[in-house]
Amino acid sequence: MTQQLENILEVNNLQTVFATEGGEVRAVDGVSFVVPKGKTIGIVGESGSGKSITSLSILRLLAKNGKVNDGEILFKGKDLLKLTDKQMRDIRGNQISMIFQEPMTSLNPVYTVGQQISETLIIHKKISKQEAMKQSVDMLKLVGIPSPEKRVKQYPHELSGGMRQRVMIAMALACDPEILIADEPTTALDVTIQAQILELIRDLQNRLDMSVIMITHDLGVVAETCDYVAVMYAGQVVEYSDVRTLFKNPKHPYTLGLLNSLPRHDVDQEKLIPIKGMVPSPHDMPVGCRFAPRCPVATQACHTKPPMLESIGNNEQIRCWMYSEEWDGDSEVTLYGEKRTVKG
């Protein structure tokens, strides 16, 4: 436990803004987390939490109207935000790769699977077309696609959704990257196919010793694949901890709320406890804690002063006044149908 892990990626105080018709919107506001080498970190949150924007910020793939305003993204000590476009391109698909939510639309319909995997190899490894095609076949084999010699010549529309996501993974892993960012990689897939893909990612991660950033809204996926988890709410990380602590001893009222509202298929639950209200509009963020309007234990102070992301204990961070010295409110909460005191 005490063994110090080498961090391959460190995100510090990331702030990403978007120019919209209603004015500038801070989609990501002060996000910090680390990715230990060879581990999987989950970024979990609901729609609008900024989890996808965070991942796109890392690879500098934001849409035209978005930009990173502040913060640093240290990849092996180098700040990605300071690189030239050319240097950044050399990292994309080579040292840091990404797969996306929609395998149906994420592949170019007019090129064969082989051409698309080869392209990555040719760009980064400077090898011949023939050699790249040969390696593409190997990659398809690696991701468990049957008869890869045949598949390599097929177009994306000839493959099922699960197969396409395998192709995406083959493409992402072609250059043996150190980090794989998986943005909701199984959300669009059926559950039996999801199981195949998650199994594949886990297996390849072990074999290739890479780090994975798993972006998802599904707490089940988090529990099964991640070592560490950052929970995001309204553009901020509200809780960061190892996965066991997050599920067994969650601290932030939002994390508790998520676990309480999740209908489970593995146990019977009496009643779900939803989080009241809804996510604040990015144009109209609460001045204090962003979760305060929905928080069951919020005090007056929560509505006026924004809490910081503070370390509490070993490798655990939390953004909540409840864990500060001066907290005078309630600290009894319900989890999995039981009352418990979270503070301390």
Binding site: L59, L61, D85, R89, D90, I91, R92, G93, N94, S97, M98, F100, E102, T105, S106, L107, N108, P109, V110, E119, T120, I123, H124, M168, M171
Partner: peptide
């Protein structure tokens, strides 16, 4: 605006090739 253009960028394809190889043909 399509997803596969984002994929091409994520692969490290240069902006010029993103336009001419990936976008134009479609």
């Amino acid at each position: 605006g399509q997803d596969y253009i984002r994929t091409a960028r994520a692969k490290g394809v240069s902006e010029r090739l993103v336009i001419y190889r990936h976008a134009l043909k479609n």
